[in-house]
């Protein structure tokens, strides 16, 4: 029953608005699988704080919840699910 409460830090790229994640290499990445996954709470707060220091590359850093499925992060909320697809659900042709 206990749902793991894991989180990822995400934002939008300043120049093109694309979805980016804070990656394991200490910078923003466009690959969800390369995102740092941390526990909700202190760890997530600290990661968000660190990622938010420099906002000259991105807009709107925030955390969102994920589940780990087969070792890969999968967003829980519909909004982040749609965001990580990078195109509207009604325009799959744009992908």
């Amino acid at each position: 029953m206990a749902r793991t409460s894991l989180q990822i830090v995400s934002a939008n790229d300043l120049l093109d608005g694309d979805t980016v994640y804070w990656g394991t290499d200490g910078g923003w990445t466009r690959t969800l699988d390369s995102a740092v996954v941390v526990d909700k709470g202190t760890a997530a707060d600290a990661l968000l704080e660190a990622a938010s220091v420099d906002q000259s590359l991105v807009v709107g850093p925030h955390v969102f919840a994920v589940d780990m499925v087969n070792g890969k992060p999968v967003p829980i909320h519909i909004r982040e699910t749609l965001r990580c697809r990078r195109v509207p659900s009604v325009r799959p042709d744009l992908a």
Partner: peptide, 8 residues
């Protein structure tokens, strides 16, 4: 100019 979910 807005910033939306996927882009400006």
């Amino acid at each position: 100019l807005y910033l939306q979910l996927h882009a400006y």
